[in-house]
Write a protein that binds this DNA or RNA. Structure first.
Lengths: 331, 331
DNA sequence: CTGAAAGCGCTTACAG
DNA sequence: CTGAAAGCGCTTACAG
């Protein structure tokens, strides 16, 4: 396999009658005489010259690459985030490299190191996740987005998840529900812990309220199976609080499969407010978190830290908002 | 910004007491004495050494990077494809770089050239799309996946879309529908053209069948607005054939918004069979195309071509399958 | 089997 | 403002 012929800065220089370093200066904004600049740019345009990223990142101090760790890309939550991050990065002339669940955490870290990323965004960190710690351990700037880790020495951005749980509980209790089940997200995730805590706190304050908790792992299939079992069982709850929208969809569908009317016999509340949730066929009552904003702030914090590693760590908590729709009703 | 200290092959060599080129040979499978190999690997393991991709792709003939052009990542169709492609690439030790709609086609091509991709997968080519042509023009191997281009000199993989259209028409006609509307995908896309053609062909063979065509652009919002207008109008059809599932969801939701019962007053057929379509709340009658298989075959063809550019071009057409669910009923 | 050397395409001091 | 030169971290002939 011969490498296909690509125009290099040396060829541009030769044709423009300048030194190769002058081409570099023109492209990177060094001081160049207007006439020289014009001549170089003309040749650059003629060949639509694109400087090699490999060479650039090899010699420069930056690769212009940001790693984004997203385990499950099929959760509709994440494409929205990816898009928001790409937008910010693209404005800065930077690129994004994805680490998904096709590879192990180990392989993911190796990948990020080989690619020489300037920083990494973690979107789904778990308490026992070694990847974020080890990445930071290699001196790579890290930001934790959406899910956070207590005492982790890095910038972090998340929604006000305890309040999200409280708002959900308040809503259901206000409708008169007392036999409630909570479909929990991944045990090691901060979001599940915080949303669970907020919900439980409000529940405890209510008279005669009984809370059952089941594991949904933030996964459609897991939640679907768990909710079907629950609904087919003896002590069917009158309301369900799901730690994310995807599990709420699973609950809605499980209810349909079991012939349980929503919201007549069962109320369902989610968390996230993914675009899907507004669909008439779904119309999910949920708690909105500012997905795009979280992604955007996360990338901005990371870029700021890459610029200045000495900045004090910031931990942003963004407000959530209750969104009442038609999957909830009186007990 | 100082570059953070990274272990290099020179340091590994020094500590192992060998030449740097020997380290390279150990890592890339050259001939090395067992004892030498052992010593080198020991040091490699000690530092968890990861060779720089930048250096490697600068000097080598391959970057190990494959560009994947996906315009709209939020269509649930695409994450499934990305995952399938990542899986194949990861097995080959290769990586994927995404080009989405945060950048223009122009910027996308520039990006791919700067990154020195070994090849590019186009998943949403349009007839007037210059990007695929120009990419190939730069000598970069290209494969067209899902959407194809007639007479394009490259490997192509698609579903049997004409048959998809025919199956949908057959189903609706068989249920007695005669006043039918077709919600069309992007005008310049092969899928919309082929699915439309297949559907029209069958329609023409049916007595007294009237077909209205409206533009949905493969976009949820566009299709939603168009279907609401259609349903609110005077000559409401009894059935809808949508060129993809996302527009069918829009149609389902638009019907709900207009108070039109599905399938009682309106039947809806989609195309794709994205996982979502099987949800009880959606339960869309559709025509399945083998998403993952298309993605997989596409990447395999591309890798084969990179290996041997002289291979004759292949054009694979994969079978589709009708999936009857509950959004369709008798006229 | 192994080492010394060239070179990939750039950026970045360093002179002038 | 501009050029000559060093060097980023590798792979790949080329000797031995």
């Amino acid at each position: 396999m011969a490498r296909r012929p690509t125009v290099t800065s040396v060829q541009i220089a030769r044709e423009a009658g300048v030194a190769q370093s002058t081409v570099s200066r023109v492209l990177n904004g060094g001081s160049v005489a207007p006439e020289t600049r014009r001549r170089v740019l003309e040749v650059v345009a003629k060949y639509d010259f694109q400087p090699s990223q490999a060479a650039r990142s090899l010699v420069g101090s930056r690769s212009g690459l940001i790693g984004v760790v997203i385990r499950d890309l099929t959760n509709p939550f994440y494409p929205v985030m990816v898009k928001a991050m790409e937008r910010v990065l693209h404005e800065q002339g930077m690129r994004l490299t994805l680490v998904t669940d096709v590879m192990t955490a180990e392989e993911g870290l190796a990948q990020l190191r080989r690619e020489g990323v300037d920083g990494v965004v973690f979107t789904s960190a778990l308490q026992d996740e070694p990847l974020a710690h080890r990445t930071a351990g290699h001196g790579i700037p890290v930001v934790l987005v959406h899910r956070t880790l207590e005492d982790f020495p890095a910038d972090q951005v998340e929604a006000d998840n305890p309040t999200a749980g409280e708002l959900a509980a308040e809503h259901l209790l206000g409708l008169g529900h007392r036999r409630i089940a909570m479909v929990c997200g991944l045990a090691g995730s901060s979001t599940a812990q915080q949303r669970g805590r907020g919900f439980r706190d409000r529940m405890r304050a209510a008279d005669g309220a009984a809370l059952t908790e089941i594991d949904g792992d933030y996964d459609y299939d897991t939640a679907y199976a768990a909710v079907r079992t629950l609904l087919a069982g003896p002590e069917r709850p009158t309301a369900l609080y799901c730690h994310n929208d995807v599990m709420a969809y699973a609950a809605l569908n499980a209810a349909a499969a079991e012939g349980v009317d929503v919201p007549g016999e069962l109320s369902v509340v989610g968390c996230d407010d993914v675009p899907l949730s507004a669909w008439e066929r779904i119309d999910l009552t949920t708690v909105r978190q500012p997905l795009e904003r979280i992604a955007q702030v996360g990338v901005e914090l990371l870029l700021g830290r890459i610029e200045d590693p000495e900045l004090p760590h910031r931990h942003e908590v963004l407000p959530v908002e209750f969104v009442g729709r038609s999957t909830t009703g009186p007990a």
